[in-house]
């Protein structure tokens, strides 16, 4: 009996204790504050006029809300153009990448062909090359193709990023081969297997890939800065940074633009976060 009691005392309880809960909530609270304060600061700055912007001590909420920054953004800058460009380019890249990467991933994961290992390792090596090292050669290639200052200059290089192939390949590899064999016996062509079996079964992987790709394009700065010269053709990131002139930095205007630019991507993430959670949970369970 005594040994039983001792065992019970030594056993690790899975029930969270009050101090554990307090500490974890404390850490979460600090993390939340650290993440949200800059956002709130941008919001506050965007609704202040220049005078109240530099008042000391700073007010989080100004006495009078100033909408001028937003009006100026839409009337005097190409903000709307930049937004449309960013969405058009981002969506085009995302759709094309999903199609290309899923097909490449399927063939690398499940089909047998000569040179498969060579192609896989070459693609894997390409993942390791840092973007900064590619900028100059890429610039010359795109210039020689006569595509500088066109949307294709942004779309084509993005399609060549092989990271998504490996993401989707890991989803497809985990599907049992017998499923594909069975579909073949049931009369499916390779295309039908791809569209009716593979794509529906890796839908969460496709969503994760789509979100990653779109977010990457949405926040891409360096390459659009190099490849696009016309202001009206520019994307949001470069456009917003161009609001900073040489002599005056209009913080209110930049804050308004930054805030508006954050909203769509936040909404997108909130709408699709369950796929992220499902994905991270399933990889956790797989061990």
């Amino acid at each position: 009996m005594r040994s039983l009691i001792r065992k019970k005392r030594n056993a690790v309880s899975l029930q969270p204790t009050v101090p554990m809960v307090t500490v974890s909530y404390g850490v979460l609270l600090i993390a939340s504050v650290v993440s949200i304060v800059p956002f709130l600061y941008i919001l506050s700055t965007s609704i202040k006029d220049t005078r109240s912007l530099f008042s000391y001590p700073p007010d989080w909420i100004p006495d009078q809300i100033f909408w001028g920054n937003y009006a100026k953004l839409f009337n005097e800058t190409s903000f709307l153009n930049w937004t449309l460009n960013t969405f058009a380019i981002g969506l085009t890249i995302t759709i094309l990448k999903l199609i290309i990467d899923a097909m490449a991933a399927y063939s690398l994961a499940k089909l047998e062909f000569a040179g498969k290992r060579l192609i896989t390792s070459t693609l894997l090596m390409a993942v390791a090359i840092p973007v900064a090292a590619l900028i100059i050669p890429l610039f010359f290639i795109i210039r020689d193709m006569g595509l500088l200052n066109t949307y294709w200059a942004l779309i084509l290089p993005a399609l060549a990023n092989p990271l998504g192939i490996f993401l989707l390949r890991s989803f497809i590899v985990s599907l049992p081969d017998d499923l594909i064999h069975s579909a073949r016996l049931d009369g499916s062509s390779e295309l039908r297997i791809f569209t009716h079996m593979i794509l529906p079964l890796i839908s969460s992987g496709l969503v994760v890939h789509a979100i990653f790709t779109f977010m990457l394009q949405y926040t891409n700065f360096l390459w659009p800065l190099v490849a696009i010269q016309t202001e009206s053709k520019q994307v949001l990131t470069v456009g917003i940074s161009s609001l900073k002139s040489n002599f005056v930095i209009d913080w209110g205007l930049i804050s308004a633009a930054s805030l508006l630019a954050t909203i769509p991507i936040t909404l997108l993430f909130l709408a699709l976060q369950r796929f992220f959670l499902a994905q991270s949970l399933s990889s956790a369970l797989k061990g």
């Binding site: 064999h181 069975s182 073949r184 016996l185």
Partner: peptide
């Protein structure tokens, strides 16, 4: 002949039912 043209039906060990 392709698998589809052989008119052979197979039952797999893990059933290979289409989960979706």
């Amino acid at each position: 002949l392709l698998p589809r043209d052989r008119n052979v039906a197979m039952v797999f060990q893990n059933y290979a039912l289409y989960p979706h």
